[in-house]
Design a binder for these strands. Structure first.
Length: 151
DNA sequence: GCCAACGTTGGC
DNA sequence: GCCAACGTTGGC
């Protein structure tokens, strides 16, 4: 089973939002590399670190599960949506979502600065790479275990 | 709010 | 196919 880290701005969609909804389509991915992870590599049951980005204390705040295979992101066809993509052909949609199911909050936020301090132990971790902007990224089993042990 | 880093676009 | 311009991400 694979593991992932998915970023969300808490002002848009926080771990509390996921907790209250239970399950949610992960809409709005508009980066091809992230899309490819969703579409080609994610499987139902994969573990997800829920990461709060672009906020006061960025870090991992909870655990979720991949709850569906990938399917076309409905927001790409919705002119009212911020994620509307007029260049996505309906017969060959560009953007995909998976559903994400809430599992639990972590007892405390594992902050980005803390993850950086453990960078050596975590090995090659794209979240910590310079200038990283990818919003969906893979986490190895070893990284998953090491990060959970910090919580 | 600033700005470095990065991905995408489009002219050539 | 190159690459400058532009828009976005996201930490600080």
């Amino acid at each position: 089973m694979a593991h992932w880290l998915m970023k969300s701005e808490p002002e848009e969609f926080s771990i509390d939002d996921l907790a209250s909804r239970g399950r949610e389509p992960w809409t709005g991915v508009r980066n091809y590399q992230a899309r490819n992870f969703l579409r080609d590599a994610m499987r139902v049951g994969d573990g997800v670190f829920f990461y709060h980005s672009n906020c006061k204390v960025p870090g991992i705040v909870g655990i979720a599960r991949v709850a569906s295979q990938a399917y076309p992101d409905p927001t790409q066809f919705d002119p009212q949506s911020d994620y509307f993509d007029p260049r996505s052909p309906p017969e060959a949609p560009r953007w995909q979502v998976v559903d994400i199911a809430f599992e639990r909050r972590l007892p405390r936020t594992i902050r980005l600065d803390e993850l950086r301090r453990h960078a050596a132990a975590l090995g090659d971790f794209p979240l910590l790479a310079r200038g990283n902007r990818l919003s969906v990224l893979p986490v190895t089993q070893a990284q998953w275990n090491a990060i959970l042990a910090l919580a």
